[in-house]
Design a binder for these strands. Structure first.
Length: 408
RNA sequence: GGAGAGAUGCCCGAGUGGCUAAAGGGAGCGGACUGUAAAUCCGUUGGCUACGCCUACGAUGGUUCGAAACCAUCUCUCUCCA
């Protein structure tokens, strides 16, 4: 199967400017394409991962990727798909985030011997002269057309600052710049980037009379239509410090039945023939697919070793029910602190399992706390030294959260 | 610059003098069911040295026995006009 067909089969392609041309360029390994990443946080997330995977797939097919770090565009802030304005970021933050991005990216993309290049649009955007830019680029944009762009639609009601309005122009300029410098003939990005990418191709066409192309990646939505890769507490990060490999694994292990196969197709590199056999699975059989998804992704992001550990930890918790594992979070108290015994409420707040004593009390009252497999049924319960026979006491909150307490 | 509207708990949103730690919904948390899923059902959701106390309805000050609510000033947001 040719690479382009594979991308289609995996459901990765959302919109293209010229399918025939793009398919041909990509299949023959002649594409020089870029994807921009604005350093808006100190770690990449799942959305970035999809873009990087796409890069990897195309790179393996012989195409040349350009990673664009958007330190310059981050100074402005992309209004696409947002209902409110982004908070302005300081130059220092952007700098720091850019470094974090760079570090994480080398894990996915091979930058050796000209196989891929990384550039930073701050290098040219920051030097721009306002009047010159207006005359060179601004002349090719009509405000009427810009205002009809999809990405501004939901901002027309709440207000769109002039600062953000210019984001599109900056991104288009990037494309032009990369075309001139590196012969970049294609831009890929998230589907919310479509308008910004289109205007880039138009700018190049108007300015230089050359045809370049744009293609967007399908947004990963779950069956309820919500963006995946988000939890209540925020994004699922690729940085192990921000989202531990275990949490990362668990996130994918717990996707809804209706989303597993889609995720496998879109996010992993498992051959489509193999995926086809999984499509037969139904009901609880899908748990196997979820395990595969979780394992594969954790492996891609954190490495095989971490993936093994995460899987082992999950099995220990849910299959064997022991809950004990070397990766279980733990807290240690000193002999003095512990004294003759410690109340369960103090332990819960100390370990962070409960944010306050009131919450701890509630948890106990509702039967959500277990110590060493025994349910705590009184909020006055006190843990004594006998509970530490194995060297630690294993506290469980709810069904899935475990914590070890040691004295020492 | 002119006219008007608004700011309530994690979010949305009711409340216009005491019955309000503040309706309802969403989200979260715990429980039941289960497949570490979804759906559903039940409970719960400011804190504490806890039948009481403290802190809270943008900020500050005031009126009152008593304020989220009334008044004044301030800050911010939005809408319309220029």
């Amino acid at each position: 199967m040719k690479i382009y067909d594979e991308l289609v089969a995996r459901g990765l392609i959302a919109q293209v400017t010229d399918e025939k041309e793009i398919a041909e360029l990509v299949n023959s390994g002649k594409a020089v394409f870029y994807i921009g990443f604005d350093p808006t946080a100190d770690s990449l997330h799942v959305g970035h991962f999809m873009a990087l995977s796409l890069m990897k797939r195309l790179q393996e097919a012989g195409n040349k990727p350009i990673v664009l770090i958007g330190a310059g565009t981050a100074m402005i802030g992309d209004p696409s798909g947002r209902t409110d304005m982004r908070q302005m970021m300081s130059v220092e933050t952007i700098q720091h985030n850019s470094e974090c991005f760079k570090k994480q990216m080398s894990r996915f993309i091979d930058f050796s011997e000209g196989k891929a290049i990384m550039v930073n649009n701050a290098d040219w955007l920051m030097k721009l002269n306002y009047v010159e830019l207006l005359r060179e680029v601004g002349i090719h944009f009509t405000v009427n057309r810009m205002l009809t762009a999809e990405c501004y639609k939901n901002r027309m009601e709440r207000g769109l600052s002039f600062l953000e309005f210019n984001y599109m122009i900056m991104q288009s300029y990037d494309f032009l710049e990369l075309y001139r410098k590196y012969g970049c003939n294609m831009q890929f990005g998230g589907d919310d980037q479509w308008s910004n990418m289109l205007t880039g191709t138009e700018l190049i066409h108007k300015k230089l009379g050359e045809n370049v192309y744009a293609m967007t990646i399908t947004l990963l939505l779950n069956s309820e239509g919500k963006k995946m890769g988000k939890t209540q507490s925020g994004a699922v990060w690729l940085d192990a410090e921000k989202t531990s490999p275990f949490e990362f694994y668990q996130y994918w292990r717990n996707v809804a039945d209706s989303d597993v196969l889609k995720c496998i197709r879109m996010l992993t590199f498992i051959p489509l023939e193999e995926v086809a056999t999984m499509e037969e699975w139904e009901g609880s059989e899908l748990n196997r697919a979820k395990e595969i998804l979780a394992f594969e992704l954790t492996k891609l992001v954190h490495g095989e070793n971490e993936a093994q550990k995460a899987q082992a930890a999950a099995k220990a918790l849910f299959v064997e029910g022991s809950g004990e594992d070397e990766n279980t979070p733990s807290t240690s108290v000193t002999m003095q602190e512990f004294g003759e015994g410690m109340s369960i409420l103090d332990i819960l707040t100390l370990t962070g399992l409960a944010a306050s004593k009131s919450e701890a009390r509630r948890l106990v009252e509702q039967g959500g706390i277990t110590v060493n497999g025994e349910k705590i049924d009184s909020k006055d319960a006190v843990l004594e030294k006998a509970a530490f026979e194995n060297g630690y006491a294993l506290i469980r909150k709810g069904k899935k959260v475990y914590h070890k307490l040691t004295i020492g």
